[in-house]
């Protein structure tokens, strides 16, 4: 054991974990604000302001998790970073176009002349949609091992829609928590609708991954391991059922448990992610490159890890502070 620590052989795994964690946090946090961005298209004029106000103080920091995730890939696994991103050249570019429009639209819409506001609202919507679809497409394309056949592209498109829907789901749950009255009721309806779509996507990934790869099939369906793994799909299933039931009866009197759908959705995200992570481990590029093969020099990894271990707790503290300051129902955003 000491030998392992001395070699730094464990470092790539620590970084794979950190990177996975960043991506998971990103999909949950930026997921809800992308979701809200896609849902504004269905909302009334005055509701749009409130919806965007609910994500206003957070989106900048949420997006930073993407930079951290990609940054860690870049930093800790330079070989994989180049391989993955050159494979994903176009979807990455499309995602970036979306991110650019949505990020700036958020700020422009409140500052541009009033007559142009609807245009910026539209750009915010399309930017969010494009970002979510591109990310979903990349996820699908990654899962299927960069398969450029028609089936592969079709599968990627399916996952694109499913991930966008999953973002809408968590966005709607966020709104249930942060809004009241008519908007909250609408958010409940949106959440119900998108829950169905998300589950379809989740099932598709769960069925397809073991089928396209014998290795993944064996990892899940060999006997002793299977018992230990059963909790993952079972818990995910229970969380989904819980979410169905809660959403059927939302909103509760005196707004009790308005946070519950959001918490349950986060649970679904976490367990789906763990399942996906288990399937691909120890590969960082499916079936092509393992975590250790792609890793940077241990000396560099060590110095980043030292920094990360000091900074991450502080970062979590002040993120919590920001959420605490802007707790409760969303109100109008004012600079003064």
């Amino acid at each position: 054991m000491q030998q392992v620590f001395a070699d730094g052989n464990w470092l790539p795994y620590a970084f794979a974990f950190l990177m996975g964690l960043s991506v998971l946090i990103y999909t949950a946090l930026d997921g809800y604000d992308l979701g809200v961005g896609m849902l504004i298209d269905n909302a009334h004029w005055h509701e749009k302001d409130r919806m965007i106000a609910s994500i206003g103080p957070f989106w900048d920091a949420n997006e930073t998790w993407l930079i951290l995730g990609v940054g860690l890939l870049l930093v800790a696994f330079p070989a994989a970073h180049g391989l993955i991103l050159t494979e994903l050249y176009l979807p990455v570019a499309i995602m970036l176009f979306g991110l650019i429009f949505r990020g700036v639209a958020f700020d422009f819409r409140s500052k541009a002349p009033y007559q142009q506001k609807w245009r910026w609202n539209n750009r915010f919507f399309y930017g969010s949609l494009l970002t979510a679809l591109a990310q979903g497409y990349m996820l699908g394309f990654y899962v299927i091992g960069f398969d450029r056949s028609w089936a592969g592209i079709l599968f990627s498109c399916l996952i694109a829609v499913a991930l966008a829907s999953a973002y809408c789901l968590i966005g709607a749950c966020w709104l249930i928590m942060k809004c009241e009255g008519g908007l909250q009721e609408k958010a409940v309806k949106w959440a119900r609708y998108h829950l169905v779509n998300s589950v379809v996507g989740l099932v598709a990934v769960s069925v397809v991954t073991p089928l396209i790869s014998d290795r993944i099939y064996d990892k899940w369906f060999s006997f002793p391991a299977m018992l230990a793994l059963v909790p993952i799909p079972v818990t995910t299933g229970l969380l989904v059922i819980g979410l169905f039931l809660v959403l059927r009866h939302m909103p509760f009197p005196r707004d009790r448990y308005c946070w519950l759908p959001f918490a349950l959705t986060i649970g679904v995200y976490v367990f789906s992610f763990v399942g996906l992570g288990y399937s691909f481990f120890p590969y960082i590029v499916p079936e092509q490159m393992t975590i250790t093969e792609a890793a940077a020099a241990p000396a560099s990894l060590r110095i980043i890890l030292a920094g990360a271990l000091i900074v991450l707790p502080v970062l979590i503290c002040y993120t919590a502070l920001a959420y605490f300051v802007f707790r409760g129902k969303a109100t109008e955003l004012r600079y003064d």
Partner: peptide, 17 residues
Amino acid sequence: GNIAGPLLAYEVLTAFF
């Protein structure tokens, strides 16, 4: 990457967040 990586990582961790 062994040089650029940690510098970029420190930028994100200490400054950007």
